[in-house]
Amino acid sequence: MAKQTASVPAPARRRLSWNDPATRALFYQVVVVGIVGFVVWYLVSNTLHNLSVRNISTGFGFLQREAGFAIGESPIAYTPADTYGRAVWVGLLNTLRVSIVGIVLATLLGTLIGIARLSKNWLVSGVASVYVEVMRNIPLLLQLFFWYAIITENMPGPRQALEPVPGVFISNRGLLLPSLQGDALDWILGALGLAIVLIVLLGHWARRRQAATGQIFPLGRVAIAVLVALPLAGWAVSGAELALNVPVLKGFNFTGGIALSPEFTALLLGLVIYTSAFVAEVVRSGIQAVGQGQWEAANALGLPRSRVLRLVILPQALRVIIPPMTSQYLNLTKNSSLAVAIGYPDIVSVVNTTLNQTGQAIEGILIIMAAYLTVSLSISIFMNWYNKRIALVER
């Protein structure tokens, strides 16, 4: 006996009717898109018309012209004879330099202060609380002015420079540090990069090993040994020259070493101190979000408090800490634009000089917007990837 298959009813044809919610929603969306498109067209056409009336050229062709102005500090070679495009690139690199260093230092300092606020020692927790409440309630711009005034006006000149550590000098010209120079430096940096890759691979292997056998691999001590041994081995194998370049006072200023300008130092201090207060609150709230039972269970196993915090609490707190921490990283990066107030040549300062000389105000603003948008989106993408990586997986 043949089986009878149920017939599938044909889908009903949708009629366009104002009583249909989907039709109304589509109509409203078309109207909104049309209004937005009209506003954009009006603004662009009006701007182009006004520029043409005033005989102001548009486009980014000016980036290929000679800049003709100097930049106080540059991580790459730059002279006034270079193009505006290279000048903008120098400003972007200066912004990236202070942002990356600031993010690392603010994370370390903020984490320590956040943990200190939870200390059972009332003096430690009290000092950390005062630090957080004071620093995050003083505007960042005022902090930048304060640190810049301290460095440029209250620090001694180069001849009376402070030397807290042999080879390290602090004066109104900034902070000077010893540096390494020689042909072996490339080998050392290559070995350092290899050591970092090896430590990451060891970390993955150690986690799999611990999950399978329960045995803890001493990754911290091994990582320190690898970071020291591989660069030394690279220097020994290369057989090249390596020397320590210590700053030396010659005339009215220092020569040699690494010089951090007063503007860079003041900007970095302000960003790190201000942002670390917010990072501390993020870390504190993340730790407190972990249930008290986790502390009690770890203490019942006889683990010391430092190991409980490192192995039990912080890994769980990271899932709460990472999202707001991303916002703080973005805030630090965008707050670096205040560098123009103390004369640090970041991308805002360089582009301002460029548009004052060329008159290309719209193009200059677009360059600044595109630069910060690209950097901010890159930070967001990386932090979102890391947040997904450490998220709990439901089974």
Rank of each mutant, 00 (worst) to 15 (best):
P218T: 02
V39A: 15
A259I: 01
S52M: 05
A191E: 01
R208T: 11
T265A: 03
G34K: 05
P158D: 06
V90D: 04
L92H: 11
W122C: 08
R319G: 05
R24C: 04
S45V: 09
L201D: 09
R284D: 02
S52E: 12
G190H: 00
V375S: 03
K120Q: 15
I258N: 13
M369C: 11
Q143V: 07
V88F: 01
P21I: 07
R284N: 05
R65S: 15
G102E: 00
M383C: 10
N94T: 10
L141I: 13
A277C: 06
I151H: 00
A106W: 01
P11F: 08
G59Q: 02
Q328C: 01
L142H: 02
L242H: 00
A280K: 01
A211R: 11
G286E: 05
A317Q: 01
A341E: 01
R13I: 14
I313G: 00
A2K: 13
K388H: 14
G61L: 11
L118M: 14
P21A: 03
P80G: 10
L377Q: 14
G174Q: 03
P75D: 02
S99H: 02
Y131L: 03
L92N: 05
N46M: 05
L144S: 00
R173L: 05
I115T: 04
T79E: 15
V8A: 10
R221K: 10
A341L: 10
A297Y: 04
A259D: 10
L202P: 12
V31S: 11
T255C: 05
L123W: 11
R15F: 06
I216K: 14
S378A: 14
S129A: 14
D346C: 08
N19G: 13
F69T: 03
L92Y: 08
G220F: 02
E133L: 13
I170H: 01
S349F: 04
S179M: 10
P315H: 06
V31T: 11
L43Y: 06
V104P: 07
L377A: 09
E163H: 14
N352S: 15
F169H: 00
M1T: 15
N352I: 08
L242S: 03
P262A: 05
G182C: 00
P262R: 04
I273E: 00
P164Q: 04
F27E: 12
Q4A: 10
L93P: 03
G37Y: 09
K388W: 07
L202F: 13
A371Q: 02
L260V: 14
V290K: 04
I381K: 14
A212G: 12
M155W: 03
G234P: 00
L185Q: 05
S125C: 07
K3Q: 13
G256R: 02
A300N: 11
Y329S: 01
Y148E: 06
A361D: 09
F217H: 05
F217Y: 09
I151Q: 03
V132S: 01
